[in-house]
Lab assay of single mutants.
Amino acid sequence: MAAGGDHGSPDSYRSPLASRYASPEMCFVFSDRYKFRTWRQLWLWLAEAEQTLGLPITDEQIQEMKSNLENIDFKMAAEEEKRLRHDVMAHVHTFGHCCPKAAGIIHLGATSCYVGDNTDLIILRNALDLLLPKLARVISRLADFAKERASLPTLGFTHFQPAQLTTVGKRCCLWIQDLCMDLQNLKRVRDDLRFRGVKGTTGTQASFLQLFEGDDHKVEQLDKMVTEKAGFKRAFIITGQTYTRKVDIEVLSVLASLGASVHKICTDIRLLANLKEMEEPFEKQQIGSSAMPYKRNPMRSERCCSLARHLMTLVMDPLQTASVQWFERTLDDSANRRICLAEAFLTADTILNTLQNISEGLVVYPKVIERRIRQELPFMATENIIMAMVKAGGSRQDCHEKIRVLSQQAASVVKQEGGDNDLIERIQVDAYFSPIHSQLDHLLDPSSFTGRASQQVQRFLEEEVYPLLKPYESVMKVKAELCL
């Protein structure tokens, strides 16, 4: 049975990233139509530049190519590739079939990587351009969430054990800070992308030097003109047959890092959902379990974690691919890159769409948070109580021993009897502590235990987050809708 299948058929496997999760716009960027249309555009740009620099290419040939950029006979191309065992030459023939007058000058002087690699770089750039505003929107939604809850005390956790208090907004800023680093890295790697350009079979530009009869300047002009037509500021000066596969490492490393950030955020949300302090959106008709109707599973956060793990592992592909590119190139890269580049971007696209949807509907339960604080705060307040007693004339050592005994009794009630923490009640009825009984409410005010959390939130948002989001103001209103 021949390899390949009808990918629109229910009898043929289709990647869930495309069929179930990723956005239509990201799927289109990695589609065959987008790819092969870009090949034709690159052939047109090459012909236009070659004509401008004096090669015998007519206006009629150029116009014929322009008129057929979208006229792609995919069936013919597939048949040609089956016959020739070469995808680029299959599309040269297919393009030439609908451009008979231009057929002889299509791909003039070029090698397969002229269309293959340059198209990949265009796709990487455009895919990054799709991700950047999506990530900015996630940051914006979380920034709104953090600002609104900047002063809401909550129990902090280290080692997932109760620690000092923080605020809900401050905790959210930990998430935002990681995503801001990801946004900066995505922008950097996007701006650092260079075009492969017009380089020939081993990167020496020998074929173009021959076409222009040894004119170095025209060869350099050709490279520059096509690079500018493709919208790049610069091209690699040095290439082998391909652009260095280190570029793929750079791009997928940034995406993998984004995956790590999203995994951490969504894990926190899942843990908070278990504590009943916070939940992701839950639709009115949504079913959490087929057997347990009360369940409210954090399905979206779980999906993000599941896909983020996949995204983090994909960076190993370009690392290994770059390491086995012998001399000017081997074909070890080809099949692998067809999979890992598309999957990385479709996965990143999915987790950003999902995280935006989550961040637009996060639900906080202040009463649950308050109750958990009441359970733990008495123990945390013991040092403040000791200091207040010393100020009232008591002995630190005597007070410490009193607190120690009462704390152990209260802990026994919590752990052995399943009761509430009654340390404060014990202190309130103990005559030894009568000098500070009137101060206990103040000493137990949760806001006095959150330090500068709310001020940190305000400063972080104003100095770091809002300036970073400013270039994306025009796209901030787009909502994230999930079908599944």
Rank of each mutant, 00 (worst) to 15 (best):
E417G: 12
F232K: 00
C399S: 13
N421H: 09
A78R: 07
L331F: 00
T227A: 06
I57V: 05
S257W: 09
C304P: 07
E370G: 09
T347V: 07
I358V: 06
Q241C: 04
R196K: 11
H159G: 01
L131I: 12
C304D: 03
E463V: 12
L155V: 03
W175H: 02
L108Y: 09
Y114E: 12
T267D: 08
L406H: 14
Q458M: 15
K479I: 13
D441A: 06
K477R: 15
F282D: 08
D32P: 05
A392Y: 06
K276F: 11
S31F: 02
T119G: 06
M380C: 02
E473F: 08
K199Y: 05
K224N: 10
T58I: 05
D332L: 02
T313Y: 09
I385V: 11
F160S: 11
L142S: 11
G104I: 12
N336E: 02
P56I: 07
E401M: 06
C172W: 10
N68W: 09
A2H: 11
A388L: 10
P366S: 05
L258Y: 09
K246A: 02
I351W: 00
H400S: 05
F379L: 06
Q397P: 05
H400F: 04
L255W: 04
I386H: 13
G394I: 04
V226F: 01
K101A: 11
I373P: 03
L142Y: 00
R83D: 14
L209F: 14
A342D: 14
M299G: 03
F379M: 13
D144M: 09
L352M: 08
T201W: 01
Q51P: 00
I72A: 07
D420A: 03
F28H: 12
L55I: 10
E70S: 14
T166D: 03
R137Q: 15
N297T: 08
L69C: 13
M312D: 00
Q63P: 03
K246I: 07
T52K: 07
H107I: 07
K134C: 07
M26V: 09
T242V: 08
S67T: 05
T38G: 00
A110D: 09
N118H: 06
K246S: 04
S438A: 15
H93L: 08
F195W: 10
I436E: 04
A256H: 05
L252S: 09
F30A: 04
M292N: 00
R338D: 01
K134F: 04
R188K: 12
G240H: 06
C180A: 14
S23R: 13
A273V: 09
E328K: 00
L443G: 03
G200V: 00
R329S: 01
S9H: 14
E370A: 02
R33M: 05
L84V: 08
L165Q: 00
P298Y: 03
F95E: 01
F95C: 03
Q375N: 09
L131W: 02
L211Q: 15
D223W: 01
R141L: 07
Q285E: 06
R171V: 01
I176K: 05
D32I: 07
D117I: 00
M181P: 03
I358Y: 08
H159Q: 01
S334V: 04
L131N: 14
T321K: 01
V364E: 03
I403M: 12
E328L: 03
I287T: 11
S289K: 01
R452F: 12
T167R: 03
P378D: 03
T38K: 13
L155R: 02
R141P: 07
V226P: 00
E481D: 15
N118F: 00
V29G: 08
D191E: 13
F30R: 04
L132C: 12
M89I: 00
G5K: 14
P281V: 11
V219F: 04
T267R: 01
V457W: 00
M181Y: 05
T450P: 00
L46I: 14
N353D: 11
L275M: 04
L444G: 10
L469W: 03
M89A: 13
L352T: 15
Q428S: 08
N274C: 11
C180L: 13
M225S: 05
P133V: 12
Q184L: 08
G200H: 02
E328N: 00
L124S: 10
S9Y: 12
M387L: 10
A392V: 14
R245K: 12
S323R: 04
D317L: 06
I265T: 11
G203D: 00
D59T: 14
E376S: 00
V251A: 11
V254L: 13
I386E: 07
E280A: 06
C399L: 07
S306E: 01
K187M: 07
E250P: 15
A453S: 14
D422L: 05
S253W: 10
P298E: 05
G451E: 07
Y13V: 15
E25A: 12
H91L: 06
G5C: 08
K391P: 11
T154H: 09
L319G: 02
K276T: 09
G54C: 05
R372C: 01
L152S: 08
R371S: 05
L186V: 13
T321S: 06
I427A: 13
D268W: 03
N357H: 06
D422C: 07
I123L: 11
W175I: 00
R171A: 03
K479S: 14
E302V: 00
R190I: 09
A47E: 02
Q409N: 11
V315C: 05
E79M: 10
R459M: 15
G169R: 02
L469H: 05
S23Y: 15
I427D: 03
H263N: 08
V88G: 06
S434T: 12
Q286K: 01
L46T: 03
G214A: 14
E343G: 13
P467C: 11
H400E: 05
I122N: 07
L355M: 06
S67V: 07
R303H: 01
G393D: 10
V414E: 03
Q456L: 14
A348S: 08
E48V: 08
M380E: 10
A411L: 09
G197S: 05
N353W: 07
N357R: 10
F460A: 06
V198L: 08
F282E: 08
K66R: 04
I139M: 08
H107R: 02
H91F: 06
A110G: 14
V324R: 01
D441N: 02
R14L: 13
S434I: 08
R141T: 13
Y466K: 14
T382W: 00
P318E: 05
A18T: 10
M278E: 00
Q210I: 15
W45K: 14
I385N: 09
L469I: 14
T202K: 00
D422F: 15
G418T: 04
D120S: 05
A136W: 04
T52I: 03
S474C: 15
F145E: 13
I139D: 04
G4D: 10
R37V: 08
V315G: 10
E79F: 15
P100R: 09
G288V: 01
I427C: 10
Y294E: 03
L314N: 03
N118Y: 05
S448D: 14
G288I: 06
R309Y: 01
L46C: 07
A348Q: 03
T354V: 12
S395Y: 05
K82L: 13
G96W: 01
Q428M: 08
R137Y: 14
Q458T: 14
F236W: 13
K170D: 04
Q184H: 13
G156R: 03
P162G: 07
N68Q: 11
M65V: 07
N336M: 11
R270L: 04
E302N: 00
D420S: 05
Q456T: 08
E283L: 10
P471E: 14
Y294G: 01
M76H: 15
L17W: 14
T354S: 11
D117E: 06
A453K: 03
V254M: 04
F212G: 07
T350R: 06
R14I: 12
A453P: 01
Y294N: 04
L55D: 02
K66C: 07
T111A: 00
C180V: 15
R190N: 04
F327E: 05
C305F: 01
D87H: 10
E383D: 06
C340R: 02
V254E: 08
M89V: 07
Y114P: 01
